[in-house]
Simulated scan of single mutants.
Amino acid sequence: MTKLADILISAKTTLPWVLTSIGAPSWMISLLVPIRESGSLIPQWPLKHRIERYVKRQRVWRVGVLVQALAILGMVPAVAMLDAFYAGAGILILLVVLSLGRALCSLTMKDMEGVLIEKGRRGKLVGIASGISGLLSLLSAGALILGKEQFEQVWLLFIMGFASVLFIATLPLSLALNAEVESENDRGGDSFLQTLKGDAALVHLIISRCLLLHSALIAPFFVSITTSQDDTFQLPYFIAASSLAAFLSSYVWGSWSDKSAVLTIRIASVICVIAGTAFYFCYQMGSLWLNVGLFFLLSVGYAGVRTARKTYLLDIASGDTRTQYVATANTVVGYVLLAFGGMYAVVYPLINEHIIALMTGFLVLGLGQSYWLKKEK
């Protein structure tokens, strides 16, 4: 349910469309993914020290879910009542709040998965959850496609409100979960730099992940470039493409990750590179179906990168060490994301569609870096 809510309020599809449809400044689109991702990653190191006090990690996870639900709920009146600039600014501010809740969930969900699911089945767990949420989101996109264009803003508000409801609905459903994490090692006092120096596999994973972030960063530009060519209500098609990609590929990626997360990262990276390259050379054709098809291909690759790197991190550590690794990796990636976001907000108005080529180049570097990752199985 939380994955379905993530898809419906995605910074790669729904929010870029919201900002475009209300006439918010274009530079705000460049900040959506960096804020969403870095805002949930940078706070994780200081949060780690507070979370370690709580043996029952599921309680902290519920707090994070509630914060996300309230942040999304606040976006609805912002879009409905405020002028373009202030509505866009309000969405960005609430996105920061949402990201803080996501930071709590990110840290604690890894602990919950590590305690409740044994090694060799974790990739399938991530894949099944993503696949089911993708199917449900695909049905939601189908309902939007059947809707009339004059109800565009009503549909946008409905999507946002429904995502908030989904988060709230998970709270009673999670009462049956009990994930207790006791300290298993003496690394809890390690500093940020000591943690990085302590495991070369962690360092290489962070570098690879920072480069492959572009599988997410590039997605909003697929949407915004297509929107600039045709201002009809196309959002449902991109949501459908993303959802179908998750539904069709997530279980496969999860199964492969359980066998070799490293190899899965490489295969998924190749798919992202192909999608970015093809879009750069074909977007001028102005074909909605071609653009959506390439967005689907990108989403398949992104699902693979995300599932594999999560499984990899779950498998190379355990207990509090896993929490420490997650916090360290996510904090570094968060700062890098913020730097990329600021750079692209400045560069995008200058190079326009050529930003696709730039980001695809970083994906190629990420593919090369993945060959430094050690085998985790």
Rank of each mutant, 00 (worst) to 15 (best):
A176L: 12
I117H: 03
L211K: 07
M112I: 15
T170K: 04
V181M: 10
L202A: 10
L217T: 07
I218N: 04
L212M: 15
L177A: 05
A129C: 09
L144M: 13
V203W: 08
A163P: 01
L139D: 05
A143V: 14
P220L: 13
A143M: 14
F192L: 14
E180Q: 12
V223A: 06
P172Y: 02
V165A: 13
D190R: 14
E182T: 10
K124E: 14
D190K: 15
G188N: 08
G127P: 02
G134V: 04
I145D: 00
F151L: 14
L205F: 08
A169H: 02
Q150A: 13
G123Q: 01
V126R: 11
G134C: 10
Q194H: 13
R209K: 15
I159R: 00
G142K: 00
I117K: 01
S137K: 01
E180G: 04
E180A: 08
C210I: 11
I128K: 09
L135W: 11
W155A: 09
T227N: 10
L135F: 14
G114W: 01
Q229V: 04
L217Y: 11
S183K: 15
A143Q: 09
L173R: 08
L156W: 00
L116P: 01
Q153Y: 10
G127H: 03
L139Q: 06
T195Y: 07
T232K: 10
V203K: 11
L146Y: 06
F222I: 06
E113Q: 15
N178A: 09
A141S: 05
L156V: 02
L156Y: 00
V165R: 08
T227S: 09
L144S: 05
G147L: 09
K148C: 08
F167I: 01
A143H: 07
I117D: 01
I168Y: 03
T170R: 04
I132C: 10
Q194T: 12
D230H: 10
V203Y: 07
T232N: 12
A169D: 03
T232M: 08
H204V: 02
E184H: 05
E149Q: 13
L135C: 08
F221R: 00
S183T: 11
H214S: 09
L173P: 03
A129D: 08
F221K: 02
L116C: 05
V115Q: 10
G114L: 05
A129K: 13
M160H: 01
L146M: 15
S133V: 02
R209Y: 15
I128M: 13
Q150E: 13
I218L: 15
A201G: 12
L138E: 02
L166A: 05
G188M: 01
I168N: 01
V181W: 02
K124Y: 10
G123W: 00
Q150G: 09
G134L: 06
L171Y: 06
G198S: 13
V126G: 03
T226R: 10
L196F: 09
S208D: 14
L212V: 11
Q229C: 08
T170H: 06
L173I: 13
V126I: 15
V126C: 08
D186K: 11
L213N: 12
S191I: 14
I168T: 07
E118V: 10
G198E: 07
L202E: 06
G127M: 04
A179V: 04
E180F: 02
L166C: 08
G131K: 03
V126K: 12
Q229S: 12
E149H: 05
E118H: 09
T170M: 13
R209A: 15
G131E: 02
D230F: 11
E184Q: 09
L156M: 07
H214L: 13
